[in-house]
Simulated scan of single mutants.
Amino acid sequence: MSKFDDFDNNFNDNEIEKAIRKVKRKSLIRNTIIALVISVITIIIAIIINNIVYMKSFNEAMTKINVNIESTVPTAYASKVNYTPGFLGVRVDYTVSKKVGDRVVHLNSKSESYGINKPLIGQGILYSDIYNSEWGKISNWEDGYRKMLFFHPNINYKEYPNDLSAINNMSDDKVIEMAISLDKGYSKDEIADIAFDMRNINTKWIWLDTFSETQMNEFKEEVKNDAQKSCGIIESQVRGLNYDYNNGNIYSGITDINEMYNSWLNHLRDGNENNITSEISNITNEINKNLYKQLIKDGKDNASNIKILGFIVEGTKEELNEIISKPYIKASTFGVVVDSLY
């Protein structure tokens, strides 16, 4: 047999096909391993980026939500918070609540999305919670509690509600939340006598005169044109200071108002300077910063230069009886009323 016959035998078609299959198999294994490695690296990078975004969103969400609540619901806070992570984002479902007496009262539920790729929030139907009463438009919270009304001393209302006069019709175990509107604006130095009368009542919030001239004119026009007896300012439209000093004793905490007001001004000015925001937070930031600019422009750059217009208080009918018929109370409206747990 010649050398050429041996060559033909060694490299026949079967051997060539076998060699080709071996090369293809090695190439397939190599390409599969490379693809798997790339996929694993991509997944790891995606997980790391997603966790960074999620954690940043997670850490900032409650701050933003609390700011939103603070600017629209005096004395309220976020409760029953549930975080649902998504890809490069997080959805936060929470309940807006307030504590009245020893009870936590749920007002309504909300959802917000945060992050680069914000998770979708389902759309629902929200029916109007506003109805007309003899005092104008009354609005309820989602869970049925009535929102409080405030009455500005520089607006001439047709009539003024006096819910304080009705507290003796309630049982002794009720804890009553109430909005108190004063007969004029008082400086923090002029409020001492009123604060002394309120020393046994739990003061939860201080109403400040933050309205611009444009807002005041709008309120006056509303009162002038509305057919109802009055058009109080709903609690979501007023701004002020949460008071959590000295167990609610405003008399012993008058000196704390300076620090509280300065801290609040700084909060309005600084807002939430973060890239990962919600639309609501962005709007709130803008509102707060505009309010800060207005207050500074109006010379209300410290607590001595801004007027106190009223309070949110709570107590039993025995406690609230101490301020019934006080001449400095122009109007009073009920908020949440609950039975005491103990």
Rank of each mutant, 00 (worst) to 15 (best):
K174R: 10
E15W: 15
E319Y: 03
Y54N: 11
N108G: 13
K158R: 11
S27I: 15
V175F: 04
F219G: 07
I29V: 11
S281I: 04
L149T: 07
Y342I: 09
D5G: 09
A192H: 10
V223F: 08
N9P: 10
V337H: 01
D270S: 09
E112T: 06
S281W: 02
S304M: 13
I233K: 05
E286Y: 08
D102V: 00
F219I: 05
N156F: 08
R21I: 14
K137F: 12
R146Q: 14
K220P: 08
L28V: 14
S97M: 05
V23C: 13
T333V: 09
D256Q: 14
K24S: 11
I234D: 07
L164A: 00
S39C: 14
D301S: 11
M178E: 01
K24R: 14
K326H: 04
R25S: 08
G240I: 00
F151C: 05
L295K: 03
K158G: 14
E177N: 02
D339T: 12
G122D: 13
G122N: 14
N168P: 00
I276T: 07
Y127H: 13
I233F: 06
F4C: 04
G122Q: 12
S57G: 12
G185D: 06
T277C: 04
N242D: 10
W264Y: 01
L241I: 03
V40C: 13
S27F: 15
E314W: 01
L208H: 03
